[in-house]
């Protein structure tokens, strides 16, 4: 089975995250880059499917040069090879453009299954799986907390507010995963060493057949008008419990008409 797992490098949420003042895009230099957390679950799920079904796991990343770190980690976890789509022309692309670029790159890798995290911790749009399924004309098996594959039949449990939906489809398909689907493995020392020798195909937009007029900040379908740091919350009142902490909160709630 040809499994492609989408991996995005995002700023570490523990480091300061900023927008650049000149073009309102993410300041990627200001923060340490890490694999988007939910993508680790996607990598793990892709590896488990490969281990059960046979085949190959390809990491597909769109992002700047420094995203190589995240690609190496995915390879160290056990993915077989990687495609790194990197091109200045892609900088500042919005969700609609990103889904187009990835669709084009998938044309190069081919796929039976595309696996990705349901959301990134930076932009948090949560739209990519839906956009890709729409563009590719394949089943959208998103928000999965369980995946079962039998031949070309695929079943997932789709997480909902009330529990889950059981969903059935046929491959090829796009699967997005939620946090509790598995427990991502840590790369072993052997895995880290092996990752250094695994092939990484670094490509530009021309290699992927991406039309430059359809990507990048200048051609985005959305634009940031302005931004500013949120005003800090006013310093609240903090008291130490002296046996009446609960009663004091109740008084505060009453003063605010909550009770």
């Amino acid at each position: 089975m040809n499994i492609v797992v989408l991996v995005k490098q995002v700023p570490d949420t523990e480091s300061p995250r900023k927008l650049k003042s000149d073009d309102s895009t993410l300041d990627r230099a200001a923060a340490d880059g890490v694999i988007n957390e939910l993508d680790e679950y996607a990598i793990e799920e892709a590896l488990r499917i490969k281990e059960a079904q046979g085949g190959e796991v390809t990491v597909l990343t769109m992002g700047p040069d420094k995203a190589t770190d995240s690609i190496r980690k995915a390879l160290a976890m056990g993915a077989d090879k990687a495609v790194h789509l990197v091109d200045e022309a892609l900088a500042g692309s919005d969700a609609l453009q990103t889904s187009y670029a990835i669709q084009q790159a998938l044309g190069r890798t081919g796929f039976d299954l595309v696996v990705l995290g349901s959301e990134s911790t930076d932009a948090r749009t949560g739209v990519l799986a839906a956009m890709l399924a729409e563009r590719l004309g394949v089943p959208q098996l998103s928000l999965a907390n369980k995946v079962e594959i039998d031949g070309s039949a695929i079943k997932i449990q789709r997480q909902t507010d009330y529990g889950f939906d059981k969903v059935e489809a046929s491959l090829p398909a796009v699967v997005s995963v939620v946090e509790k689907i598995n427990e991502p493995r840590y790369p072993s020392f052997k895995g880290i060493m092996a990752a250094k020798k695994k092939p990484v195909d670094t490509i530009g937009i021309a290699d992927a057949g991406i039309d430059a007029a359809q990507v990048g900040l200048a051609n985005a379908a959305t634009e940031v008008v302005d931004f500013a740091e949120a005003p800090p919350r006013a310093q609240g009142q903090i008291v130490t419990d002296e046996g009446d902490g609960g009663a004091k909160i109740a008084e505060f709630l009453a003063s605010k008409k909550f009770v």
Partner: peptide
């Protein structure tokens, strides 16, 4: 393409 076969209320 993606059929919902059951809605499970948990």
């Amino acid at each position: 393409a993606a059929k919902i076969t059951e809605k499970v209320v948990q």
